[in-house]
Amino acid sequence: MTNFHSTIDVSVNGQRRSDEVDHRSTLLDYLREHLGLTGSKKGCDHGQCGACTVLQDGLRINSCLQLAVMADGTEVITIEGIDAEGIDAEGIHTEGIDGTVDRAGSGGGGASLQRTFVELDGLQCGYCTPGQICSAVGVIREIAAGWPSAVMEQVTDRPALTEAEVRERMSGNLCRCGAYVNIVPAILRAQELRS
């Protein structure tokens, strides 16, 4: 007899959880419907808009495209817990990449992004904002870890946090209000604040 449910052990915003999930549930539905963490949004539900972005083991992912059962054993951070998240490369250190991991400003990076999004009007309706901020934490970490992007002259270069990099790396987060002109400065400003 096939079992259609499993118990998963996950850490969500630092709290350990053990819950039974239907194998069909996505991580997004588990967070919203099971845990009541409705900050992560369901926009397209097909991985195209980024409103559902959360951090898993330090990396940003689309929670709408991962089954909750696949998240067993992982650590998930949603917008509800992002304020305590650092925006350094800790946790995603990449083997063989030259350069030191910059730990300055570790802790509170997520909170500074929340502040700069408010101060610089990085939103209008706000629906995409939780995903934008979680994704931005991931972007700043990935740049700190030296991960390449499509706008680099050479993939062997070390990236810097520039407007072009932010625009490229944030392309998985759509904002139908078109607040991009303020989202980009908000991310750049958050980085300035911590350095």
């Binding site: 991985g47 940003r60 990449t94 063989g96 994704s135 062997t156």
Partner: peptide, 30 residues
């Protein structure tokens, strides 16, 4: 991770370029 690997970037830059031109940051992490 594959796109970020220093050996891939140095020895097979065409592969790293193709990877970072695909999908989004979130999808590439999955």
């Amino acid at each position: 991770r594959l796109a970020a690997d220093a050996r891939v970037r140095q020895r097979y830059p065409v592969l790293a370029e193709a990877l970072v031109n695909g999908a989004s940051g979130q999808l590439r992490n999955m």
